[in-house]
């Protein structure tokens, strides 16, 4: 990952009183939060609290209705395209092409930013989807393998901010441990990771800090780091 991000103490996400709509419903009703680079932050909260919307907003997929939102020091309302290229979102969908193989998927996403085949291969290796799985169509993979394919695609396209919506859902114990190890390694390498989850014991041990999302607003939980 890029070194400029981890060397300067700058915010990966900086929101002030942000409102965002789903249709005409205020899914985010004034969010103020700050996330530093290199952090692994857990967003927790009940269903419908706005966790997914918050992640989609950070990814530049939703317009900011009110308030100011900066992601990776870029204003979301102005530089949305630049933000998008540096951010990766994995939500309830993995953004894969089910008819294509694992290698073809990861290579496709890598090549959208001009990544070399070596980068693609190392991304697949880090997610342990090289070898036997490499030439299997994504439609035949298990949920965990699909998730790892999506993460490998994020690495291949050099995303600096990872937004993961319920990444542990549908994974077995082994898959979860592997995922956690992978995320810690990515954060150590300079990526900022925001995880939305309501599996607190699992995601909580992974995170350096927790933010609670309730009714479209955020509040800090516990001491934090």
């Amino acid at each position: 990952m890029s070194s400029d991000g981890s060397s300067t103490p700058s915010a990966a996400i900086e929101f002030v009183d942000v409102v965002a709509l789903i249709g005409s419903f205020p899914a985010l009703a004034g969010v103020t939060m700050r996330i530093e680079r290199g952090e692994i932050v857990l967003l927790r909260g009940p269903n419908g609290a706005g966790k997914t919307t918050l992640l989609r907003l950070c990814a530049g997929l939703l317009p900011v209705e009110r308030g100011t939102a900066r992601v990776l020091e870029l204003d979301l309302t102005i530089d949305r395209d630049s933000v998008r290229r540096r951010v990766g979102l994995i939500g309830h969908t993995n953004g894969s092409y089910p008819d294509l193989t694992v290698t073809e998927n990861v290579r496709f996403w890598g090549r959208t930013i001009g990544a070399t085949d070596d980068e693609v291969a190392s991304a697949m290796e880090r997610m342990k989807i090289d070898g036997r799985l490499a030439d299997v169509p994504v439609s035949r993979l298990s949920a965990g393998q699909r998730r790892r394919t999506a993460l490998a695609s994020l690495i291949a396209r050099r995303a600096q901010l990872w937004l993961l919506d319920e990444p542990h859902a549908g994974l077995d114990a082994e898959g979860r441990d592997e995922l956690d190890a992978v995320l810690r390694a990515a954060a150590a390498a300079g990526a900022t990771i925001v995880v939305a989850s309501h599996e607190l014991e699992r995601a909580g041990s992974l995170a350096t800090r927790q933010i609670e999302v309730v009714a479209g607003q955020t509040r800090e939980v516990g001491g934090g780091s």
Partner: peptide, 17 residues
């Protein structure tokens, strides 16, 4: 349909392609 089956169009947009 190929693009929306697994959210690839969203991913293309969010990757700023």
């Amino acid at each position: 349909a190929v693009e929306t089956a697994d959210g690839a169009l969203d991913a293309l947009r969010s990757a700023g392609v």
